[in-house]
Design a protein around this nucleic acid. Structure first.
Lengths: 197, 197
DNA sequence: ACGTCATCGAACCGGTCGTTTCGATGTGGA
DNA sequence: TCCACATCGAAACGACCGGTTCGATGACGT
């Protein structure tokens, strides 16, 4: 993957390699924590190559965040689907998946939300809004299948627990945030599912 | 407050003025969104004055975040106390206060958490951890007075709702996030308070 | 009245960062 | 064989930013 010298091995593959390596680096160090020079050096690509593929650092960041959003959403959706048909089990599976994420030593919060928080406008905020949209779809679907009276409301409440748990896991060092949130999420699901309230 | 020329009106007041103006500017524009030069120009102070009072931009940011944490915590605590003795009413009052905050046009999320998310180490993360600590104290206290079986757990769940609501209000444009979160918070409080679960 | 002190405004410095460009090198297809 | 293309490595760039310094200005306490 370093592509020794002259190489037209495959521009597509080169782009994918840069994207993959940059995703990890930007997440570990922060979007402003690593410059283009060091990024290129670590990735193993020249500046010219990076700029031809992504146009600018912002372009690279955008590509990274989009890919990250796709990955996270698919990951949680598959975790839910793997849990079977029971909505409560699906919801539990989502938080169990989050627990595994929070436990990773490299966990540093949600890259997308963090990026969106850093700048008050620009592409990252758009990406974050769409990311939360898709996130909300998953949870609202679970709420609806559970027979919630207000699935849109319950879905948002569940999303708040997910995002809140991520914040506490990151900024408050709460390793068991996912388990705590899961308990609350199931309680809310049970409450609305049984027509209580 | 611009202090026309030579002024020893009161160094303490000068510092307070800078701090107050900088708090607003750094919140609106983001910590990296405004440089020291423009900050000084807008505040109405010279660089020398700023550096004598705060030592560095990081020093100023630290002072701003600390002051902000004090202000927010006191604000929520007073909102809760003003609601009387009923824990449920206090909890509702906290989310009602948040609703007012989210509705402000200048609302841009929690400055402290945003700052902490931007850098993976350094002072802001420490400030954020302490900020969440104090936040947690307030909510755990309400949970305890409500007779929750596990006040520490419920407190953290409530804090997740607060932080999650802030994230959704900011990054997802949900103006009614506080009301949605309040409903969930009261449901959780009722669930644990009545010994259910 | 005088000296200390806080402040201003402006210039300056060193470093870093994103971005561009260029010559050289090697691969693959016509 | 030859040309188009992707890549590298390195240099250079212009801009900006955090921080320092300096002379001038004026207020306050003694």
């Amino acid at each position: 993957m370093p592509v020794p010298k002259g190489a037209s091995l495959d521009p597509v593959q080169t782009r994918a390699t840069i994207l993959r390596a940059a995703t990890g680096l930007l997440y570990e160090r922060g979007l402003d924590g690593i410059g283009v020079a060091e990024l290129c050096a670590t990735v193993g690509a020249s500046k010219e190559t990076l700029y031809r593929h992504f146009g600018s650092k912002d372009g690279l960041v955008e590509a990274v965040l989009e890919a990250r959003s796709d990955h996270v959403v698919r990951w949680l959706r598959e975790a839910a689907e793997a849990a079977g048909d029971d909505p409560a089990a699906q919801l539990a599976a989502v938080f169990d998946a989050l627990a595994g994420w929070y436990a990773e030593p490299a966990f540093r919060g949600c890259a997308i939300v963090n990026a969106s928080a850093q700048w008050h406008d620009g592409v990252p905020r758009t990406v974050a809004a769409r990311h939360l949209d898709r996130h909300l779809d998953l949870l609202t679907g679970i709420a609806r299948r559970a027979g919630a009276r207000q699935p849109e409301v319950l879905g948002r409440q569940l999303l708040m627990l997910v995002e809140g748990a991520t914040v506490l896991a990151d900024h408050h060092g709460e390793r068991d945030a996912a388990a705590t949130a899961k308990q609350a999420a199931l309680a809310l699901l049970r409450g609305q599912g049984e027509g209580a309230f």
